[in-house]
Every structure is written in C-alpha cells, then in structure tokens.
C-alpha cells in the first residue's frame, strides 16, 4: 500500500469512527450505560452536540466519498502507466462493493433525514420510521463489512 492510500484510509477511518459514534449517540444509550460518564465522553449524552457533530462529519464523509469516487472514475481513464495508483486495470473488490452500497444507502437516507429536519418540511410518519430504521440497518451493514475486511485484511481495490 502506497503512502497516498494510507493517509486516505486514515481520514476514512477517523471519519467512520466519529460518524458512527455520533450516530449511535442519537439513541439515549450512552448516559444509561455510563459511557458518557467516562471523562472526555460527556458530550455523547448531549443530543444537540452529537447532532451537530454527526452533520459536520457527514459533510466531511460526503466530500471524501465524492473525491474518492471521482478519483477512481478519472483514474481508470489513465493510460495504464505504473505512475498512478489507479489505472484502467484497477478493480473494486467484492467486499468493497458491499461497503460502497451501504455507504450510498447511508448517504441517500441521511440526505432525506437532513431535509426532513428542516423547518416546514413534512414527511409521512411511515417514511420517517422507515428512514430511521434503514439508516440504522445500513450503518450496521457498513460496520460489519468494515470489521470483516479489517480482520481479513481485504482491500478496497485490486
């Protein structure tokens, strides 16, 4: 793995960590289970703080995903010289496809939820519940796939 991708993986890892943490903090569980009592983690029980952090990190993640996606798209148009990390021969692994699908779903449902939270916007109740549950399920899929690829040492591309 070249250094360029190491820094990319570090940014993605940190983003994923904080967005997952602030996302789970939307449920009132961290105070109940003493996690918010750990010094430095009190913010996990402050719903407006976690709400803003989740939004901010989501913006960062969306920017990062857009960069990586376009980089891959344009990279595959390179002539195939060994100079660049991504070339026309680069392929996405199966496990990465699962993670990409989950990420796309999370971004899509997340965007609807952000719109739903704007003043004066009304979504039918069933759709709101559906979005909440789907967002949570997709987060579990992404974290599960991430854990699997991390343990098995699988990469995003080959």
């Amino acid at each position: 793995m070249v250094y360029h991708f190491k820094s990319r993986r570090m940014v993605y890892g940190l983003t994923l960590f904080f967005i997952a943490l602030s996302g789970f903090a939307q449920m009132p569980i961290f105070k109940r289970y003493y996690i918010a009592d750990i010094p430095g983690l009190g913010w996990l029980a402050q719903f407006y703080v976690t709400h803003v952090i989740h939004y901010a990190v989501a913006a960062l993640l969306m920017g990062f995903c857009a960069y990586v996606a376009f980089d891959y798209f344009f990279g595959r148009r390179n002539s195939g010289t060994k100079k660049f990390q991504i070339t026309k021969d680069t392929r996405i692994t199966a496990s990465a496809r699962v993670k990409i699908a989950a990420l796309c779903g999370l971004i899509l449902t997340g965007c609807f939820m952000v719109v739903k939270n704007l003043s004066g916007i009304y979504f039918p109740h069933g759709v709101v519940i559906g979005l909440d549950l789907l967002h949570l399920v997709l987060a579990m899929v992404l974290l599960g796939a991430t854990a699997y690829t991390w343990v098995r040492g699988r990469s995003w591309i080959f």
């Binding site: 939004y55 969306m62 920017g63 857009a66 798209f73 965007c111 952000v114």
Partner: peptide, 27 residues
C-alpha cells in the same frame, strides 16, 4: 435549537462538490 443543524445542511451540499472538484483537479 435546530438552527445549527439546518445551517450545516448547506455544508452537506458544498462538501461533495468540493470533493469532486479536488478529484478533477488531480486528474
């Protein structure tokens, strides 16, 4: 109380555009 979140929604529109622009610049 919801104002901060609503303001950050704008960042979510700008961020993907910025990410795409950075990739185009690199290409």
């Amino acid at each position: 109380t919801m104002a901060a979140g609503s303001n950050l929604a704008i960042a979510m529109v700008i961020a993907p555009i910025a990410g795409a622009a950075a990739a185009v610049g690199k290409y």
